[in-house]
């Protein structure tokens, strides 16, 4: 994907097409929300000197789940989780931003943001089974 907001929607739609057969209706919705928020977040916040470098995305399937990995550009500063990993209940209803990570946390079955190789990686897991949400 290009490091450009205008490329996010196209990418999300094509990623969703890959998991269309694998996840149920509710799983697909969560996947779409997470993919959209994760990619938007990355384009908006990951500082990089080279905006022409494409963003690396990995989609894998295990027997029980689908895992989406979104990699920060090499050398980009770590995203500050402490300020953003907040519950949607804690966001001011009239705030115009700040819901991205809360949405991801609520929609993904498991989320991790940790170094992988030479860069940070956000990995999101979507269970193929029904969750008790």
């Amino acid at each position: 994907m290009q490091n450009d907001l205008n490329d996010v929607d196209r990418t999300v739609v094509s990623l969703k097409a890959f998991v269309d057969e694998v996840l149920d209706q509710s799983g697909l919705f969560k996947f779409e929300v997470c993919a959209s928020e994760a990619l938007t977040n990355l384009v908006k916040h990951a500082k990089t000197d080279d905006t022409t470098a494409p963003i690396k995305i990995e989609l894998t399937e295990t027997p029980a789940a689908v895992i989406l990995r979104v990699f920060d550009p090499v050398g980009a500063a770590r995203f500050d989780l402490r300020d953003h990993a907040q519950s949607l209940d804690d966001v001011d209803p009239l705030a115009e931003s700040g819901r991205g990570l809360g949405l991801i946390m609520q929609c993904a079955d498991h989320a991790d943001y940790a170094p992988q190789g030479d860069r940070m990686c956000l990995s999101l897991k979507f269970s193929k089974l029904e969750t008790d949400q």
Binding site: A85, D90, G102
Partner: peptide, 15 residues
């Protein structure tokens, strides 16, 4: 162990 998951859970709990 996942910092992201931990921070989020803490935020929920705090809330």
């Amino acid at each position: 162990d996942s910092e992201l998951q931990r921070l989020y859970l803490c935020s929920l709990i705090n809330g």
